[in-house]
């Protein structure tokens, strides 16, 4: 019962340590203490010394935006995963697995290839809209009066992802060299080359999504009783579902626009948190955000370190960790699925 008390400080400590590692590790080794000073310098704009100018530059321009982007996207994806699992009343829902990420990537790809002069925010908006449509389509396909079926949900996800994949393929065929590079990077998911405007957009998305999700935490709990039961508790179920779907689309859309498809964070993190504190969304959502941020930052460190001085796309790293996890979950649920 009281296992939450130690979990909060533990996860927060892990988050801080991971963040500090993330700004320290890279081709230019900077010690954690120097990194810490550099971050303070940056945040306060007061030079407290002890940081060489080139180190400060690397931190300001490369490591800090990259770390912040990893934290924000990790926190958003983990919460979106937790909310989707509650919304679909299904522990296997994840933006990647049910095709929402692919849909959003298709939207982003349309914008990059067909409207290259549209600007950076056009990509985010287009990714959001496509993500929204995908979520609604998958939800419709998978819903029946008794809730959503796992089989239908996963199959709808496969179908929608295949369709989006075909669309992206077509766009790849049409794309010029510049757009092609962008597209390839996206489908793998990467936080390298994080730009400040995407960092800010992702942080805003994180703030909005966390705020609204946490306000809906009790309603999400009630929704797990079943839709009819939730209505009897005075919940406006249709309004709640629409709100949560739009918020997930915003979160996933902006994340995909910023980093491409990063899978499995939304699946793995809520499961780990549920194992530690149980399914109550009041605890699950904030703790998923913290763990998701730390885990994606850690995966990004891995992406930089494994083949240094070169880099892996972080989406590969999360898939390497997440896919086996997903298989284990499937095996555990096998008796229920057949």
């Amino acid at each position: 019962m009281d296992n939450r008390r130690w979990l909060w400080p533990c996860l927060l400590t892990a988050l801080v340590i991971t963040s500090l590692m993330s700004v320290s590790i890279g081709p230019l080794q900077i010690s954690p203490s120097v990194s810490f000073s550099a971050v303070i310098n940056w945040a306060t704009q007061i030079d407290i010394g002890s940081v060489a100018p080139h180190e400060q530059l690397v931190i300001d321009q490369v490591r800090l935006p990259r770390t912040l982007l990893a934290l924000a996207v990790g926190a958003v994806l983990a919460q979106c995963g937790a909310v989707m699992q509650g919304l679909f009343r299904n522990p296997l829902a994840d933006p990647g697995i049910i095709g929402v990420s692919s849909g959003a990537a298709f939207g982003a790809a349309i914008c990059i290839v067909l409207f290259p002069q549209g600007g950076e925010y056009a990509v985010a908006i287009s990714a959001f809209l496509a993500g929204l449509v995908t979520t609604l389509v998958v939800y419709r396909l998978a819903s029946s009066p008794s809730g959503t079926s796992v089989v239908l949900l996963l199959l709808s996800g496969v179908a929608v992802a295949a369709l989006a994949g075909a669309g992206i393929g077509l766009l790849t065929y049409m794309a010029d060299d510049m757009a092609l590079r962008d597209l390839t990077l996206w489908q793998l998911g990467s936080i390298a080359g994080a730009q400040w405007h995407y960092v800010i957009l992702s942080l805003i998305a994180l703030a909005v999504v966390s705020w609204q999700f946490n306000r809906s935490a009790k309603a999400l709990n009630a929704l797990l009783l079943g839709e009819a039961e939730a209505r009897h508790l005075g919940l406006d179920v249709d309004k709640l579902k629409l709100k949560l779907i739009v918020l997930c689309a915003i979160g996933v859309g902006i994340s995909v626009a910023a980093t491409g498809i990063i899978g499995f964070i939304g699946l793995v993190v809520p499961h780990l948190v549920r194992m530690m504190v149980g399914p109550d969304h009041k605890q699950l959502l904030p703790l998923s955000a913290i763990l998701g941020a730390a885990l994606l930052a850690l995966a990004d460190i891995g992406a930089r370190a494994i083949v240094a001085p070169s880099e892996l796309p972080v989406g590969l790293v999360t898939a390497l960790i997440g896919a086996p996890f997903f298989i284990v979950l499937l095996l555990k649920q096998r008796s229920k699925l057949v």
């Binding site: 522990p91 009630a222 797990l224 079943g226 508790l233 005075g234 919940l235 149980g278 399914p279």
Partner: peptide, 19 residues
């Protein structure tokens, strides 16, 4: 009523506080 996730008994009763 079946619940998808393993809530504890008091958490199920707590859902009644919603309205």
């Amino acid at each position: 009523a079946s619940l998808t996730f393993p809530f504890q008994v008091h958490q199920v009763v707590e859902m009644g506080l919603y309205p």
